[in-house]
């Protein structure tokens, strides 16, 4: 195969990014909408005080939320102040960045449906495990 020129390579890259544009725009529009619809106060109202169920709830809320991780730190900090356990808050923080229900359509279209679904399910389970291990370690330290 003949090596492509830099210009040809650039055109090819531009084309594949252009092909992605509707997906990227759609995802950003969805993220924007969810950011506005879910008020910050909603997050603290769903926890029940049980470490196990709270971790699950934390992972779940983190998974359906989207946006800048900074927002999750701020919400996580607030949750801690309200007495929510650090395990639940950690599960929430980890799921926020590793599980992306909003991005799922884009991930499926570009990396394969099966890959995207399995990766997100495993990341969901992992968010609780990572949280538990982190807190266990912190307890030992």
């Amino acid at each position: 195969m003949k090596k492509q020129t830099l210009k040809q390579t650039a055109i090819k890259a531009a084309k594949s990014l252009y092909n992605m544009l509707p997906i990227i725009l759609g995802i950003i529009l969805l993220i924007s909408l969810i950011n506005v619809i879910i008020p910050k106060a909603f997050y603290s109202s769903v926890f029940r005080g049980n470490i196990l169920t709270d971790s699950f709830i934390g992972s779940f809320i983190g998974s359906i939320s989207a946006g800048n991780p900074v927002t999750s730190y701020i919400i996580g900090g607030e949750l801690l102040k309200q007495g929510i356990s650090l395990v639940a808050v950690t599960a929430f923080l980890v799921a926020w960045v590793t599980v992306g229900l909003v991005q799922l359509p884009a991930e499926s279209m570009l990396l394969g449906k099966k890959f995207a679904i399995i990766r997100n399910i495993i990341a969901f389970i992992f968010s609780m495990i990572v949280a538990a291990i982190t807190i266990l370690f912190l307890g030992v330290l």
């Binding site: 701020i74 996580g76 950690t90 990766r119 495990i129 990572v130 982190t134």
Partner: peptide, 21 residues
């Protein structure tokens, strides 16, 4: 927001988790 120890432990656990995942 969460302190030094927390950040370091969480980051390391996440890197290990990425391998397993």
């Amino acid at each position: 927001y969460f302190g030094w120890a927390y950040t370091i432990v969480l980051t390391l656990v996440m890197i290990l988790a990425s391998l397993l995942q």
